[in-house]
Nucleic acid binder design. Structure first.
Length: 87
DNA sequence: ATAATGACGTGAT
DNA sequence: AATCACGCCATTA
């Protein structure tokens, strides 16, 4: 069964997956919602390893307003936000 | 168990 | 405003 690390990783992925279109959250916010306030870095790590397209990880940006990174290219991330998110 | 890594955050320079 | 340094946390080797 799933006795694996089904805590933070799944929590973060679940939160990100719940982000609605046109909405953007920061890593710190996701971390807080996931149950680990202050673990923004860990959130990024989880997302970086996440190749699931079902998860709109491109809707997660930095707290300073930057786009952050993206597995498909940060430039692509900005483009997606402009096209699908930042309406 | 320890060390190294990384899509962060805030403060200081 | 931009850059550097330190701190924080979870995952992987």
């Amino acid at each position: 069964m799933s006795d694996k690390k089904n805590n933070f990783r799944d929590a973060v992925l679940t939160v990100v997956r719940n982000i609605k279109r046109g909405k953007v959250l920061t890593y710190g916010e996701v971390a807080r919602i996931a149950g680990r306030p202050g673990a923004g870095r860990a959130v990024g790590n989880v997302l970086s390893r996440n190749f699931n397209q079902d998860i709109p990880c491109h809707r997660v940006v930095r707290s300073d307003g930057s786009s952050g990174g993206y597995n498909r290219g940060a430039a692509n991330k900005v483009r997606l936000l402009k096209k699908e998110g930042a309406l």
